Computed example of a mutant assay.
Amino acid sequence: MEEAGSMNIFFVYANKLVTPRLTDSILPGITRDSVLALAPQLGYEVEEKDISIDEVLSDIKSGTLTESCGTGTAAVLAPVGELFYKGEKNIINDNKVGKVTRDLYKRLVGIQYGIEKDVFGWFDVAGKI
């Protein structure tokens, strides 16, 4: 697994966010980097590693993969409710937005709109991202 369309992909295992490590074929997105920085502040572990489709499908079936989302500039964080592979539909989190995705989205958008404190210094001196 590398991406979800043109978005960086994340998988959630309990309180841990897992995303593919950067390679020559994975775009190092700003939103991806923002999620990796925000997650520990919200109490979530992060891990960047190689992830096979077989591993992901097995983890969906066992229930250890609890949610998934894609990150990108326009979408910010978009939940991934199913993976369709080799003619089989694999549903993630009953095709609903998960708590981790919701928490990260709320915090990131809150920082973008000035509702949440920017502890990272992402705003420039003029107060714009």
Rank of each mutant, 00 (worst) to 15 (best):
A4K: 00
A4V: 10
S6L: 13
S6K: 07
S6D: 10
M7F: 01
N8D: 05
N8V: 02
I9V: 15
I9L: 14
F11C: 12
F11Q: 03
F11E: 07
V12E: 07
Y13E: 10
N15L: 08
N15H: 14
K16F: 06
T19A: 07
P20S: 11
L22H: 04
L22Q: 09
D24A: 14
D24W: 05
D24Q: 13
S25D: 14
I26L: 11
L27K: 03
P28S: 13
P28H: 11
I30V: 15
T31H: 11
D33N: 15
L36C: 09
A37F: 00
L38F: 03
Q41E: 14
L42M: 09
E48I: 05
E48P: 13
I51C: 13
I51V: 15
E55N: 04
V56M: 12
V56W: 02
L57S: 10
S58L: 12
S58P: 00
D59P: 07
I60K: 08
I60G: 12
K61E: 14
S62Y: 01
L65H: 09
L65M: 11
E67Q: 07
S68N: 05
S68D: 04
C69W: 12
T71P: 12
T71C: 15
T71V: 10
G72I: 04
G72Y: 02
T73Q: 04
T73I: 05
V76D: 00
V76Q: 00
L77S: 01
P79R: 05
E82K: 12
L83Y: 12
L83W: 11
Y85V: 15
E88K: 15
N90W: 13
I91Q: 08
I92F: 08
N93Y: 11
D94K: 15
D94G: 09
K96Q: 14
G98Y: 01
K99Y: 08
T101H: 01
T101Q: 08
R102P: 00
D103T: 04
L104A: 02
L104F: 03
L104I: 01
Y105G: 06
Y105W: 08
R107I: 01
V109C: 03
V109Q: 00
G110E: 03
I111A: 07
Q112T: 01
G114K: 02
I115N: 12
E116T: 13
K117R: 13
V119S: 15
G121K: 07
A126N: 12
G127H: 03
I129Y: 09
I129K: 06
I129L: 13
